[in-house]
Amino acid sequence: MAVILLLLAIAAVVYPLYFVLIASISDPNQIYEGNVWFFPQGITFEGYQRIFGDIRIWQGLGNTFLYTIVGTAISVTAILCGAYALSRKDLPGRKFLMLIFIITMFFDGGLITKYLVVRDLGMLNTMWAVVLPGAVGVWNLIIARSFFEQSIPDELREAAQIDGANDFTFFLKMVLPLSKSLIMLMIMIHVVANWNSFFDALIFLNDDSKYPLQLVLRNILIQSDISSTGTTGGDVASYAAAQRIAELTKYAMIVVSSLPLMIALPFMQKHFTKGALIGAVKS
């Protein structure tokens, strides 16, 4: 019974993804008629041709890779350094600093305040407006701090100090090599977050050439919907063609935006499980 339930749960998760994949290369009319279940019908790659033929897609893809790499590097570096410092019992004001961080989990200044800060710092319409405001997640900071408290004993630091290592040397040569699971966990979390992020870009960027992929796909989808609904009612053939293109584009965009992460994440899954368990907060 447990195996059957598990298989049903897997099917409930996997089938929608599989359906989107086969729908992206199927004739929309076949989808409307309910003929697409397990195999594509009326195979066509028009949706992908239209997407990859748009220069905005390639610009957005390049921007997303840039934002993801830079944003992940900044976030992981800040979290590891901050969490290790907060894990040290000899840090002055350690409890007060942690309280300040925790308060930000429950109280937010709001979007207007955030916009004014970004504007006054001169980051509007730059990459930094996308990668810096949410660089440090407090919950990830707590997980990393708990990991260091549980996995890096004080005796190890004392032994390193006897051998002449200062705090920076100990952190770089001892702490980080012993924290590979945590590092991979943080990298995966922030890669996913940065790859899927679009709201900050929507608010802070006004140059189309700097839009990330998710925002570019959103704009293309909106344009497709407007084109399909804006067709005059008397021209049935034009309306049907526009609706067909909109449907093909919609499914193809889901695949294009999701496939890179779906390929990469299985290789990082073991690190995710191990890092999350080791860094779990214990009462």
Rank of each mutant, 00 (worst) to 15 (best):
L7D: 05
L66M: 05
L185K: 13
A2I: 14
A78G: 08
A165Q: 05
N140H: 08
G47E: 05
Y48I: 00
L205G: 04
I226D: 15
S258A: 13
S228Y: 00
V255T: 10
V256C: 07
A264W: 11
K173L: 12
P16N: 11
R50A: 12
M105V: 12
Y239V: 14
I25N: 03
V70W: 03
A159T: 02
V191F: 09
P266R: 02
L8S: 11
L205K: 04
G34Q: 00
L91C: 09
M1T: 07
L97T: 13
G109V: 08
V192C: 11
S197H: 09
F170K: 13
I43V: 13
C81G: 13
R88T: 07
F38H: 01
A246Q: 07
L61F: 15
D163W: 04
A9M: 15
S87V: 13
F168I: 13
E33G: 05
T64E: 01
R218Q: 11
L66Q: 06
L6Y: 08
H190P: 01
F39A: 11
G134D: 04
I25Q: 02
I51V: 03
T113M: 13
G53Q: 06
A201S: 08
T231I: 15
A201D: 03
D200M: 06
A264C: 12
G279R: 08
G93C: 14
A2E: 11
L111I: 08
T169P: 06
I143L: 14
A276K: 14
S228T: 10
I222T: 12
L185H: 09
I55N: 10
K282T: 01
A135I: 02
R218N: 11
A237W: 06
T64A: 10
W37Q: 01
I79Y: 06
L221A: 11
G234P: 06
I263C: 09
T232Y: 14
H271T: 03
A160Q: 04
L259S: 12
G47A: 06
N166V: 00
F148S: 01
N63M: 12
Q161M: 06
D90Q: 15
T72S: 13
D54N: 12
G137R: 11
N63T: 04
D163A: 01
F106H: 04
D207S: 14
R56T: 03
W128T: 05
I100S: 12
K274T: 13
D154K: 15
A83Y: 06
K114C: 06
S257H: 03
R88W: 06
V13Y: 10
S209C: 09
L116W: 09
Q161G: 10
A23C: 01
E46A: 15
G137N: 03
D208L: 15
G234R: 07
A237F: 04
N206A: 03
L21E: 00
A159N: 02
I112D: 00
S257K: 07
L124W: 03
G60N: 01
I51Y: 09
E247V: 15
L132K: 02
I102P: 03
T169W: 12
L121A: 00
P212M: 13
F170S: 08
D235P: 03
F107R: 01
F101R: 04
A129R: 08
I142H: 00
P266D: 07
L132R: 04
F101C: 13
I254K: 01
F148T: 10
K173H: 15
I22A: 01
E33M: 14
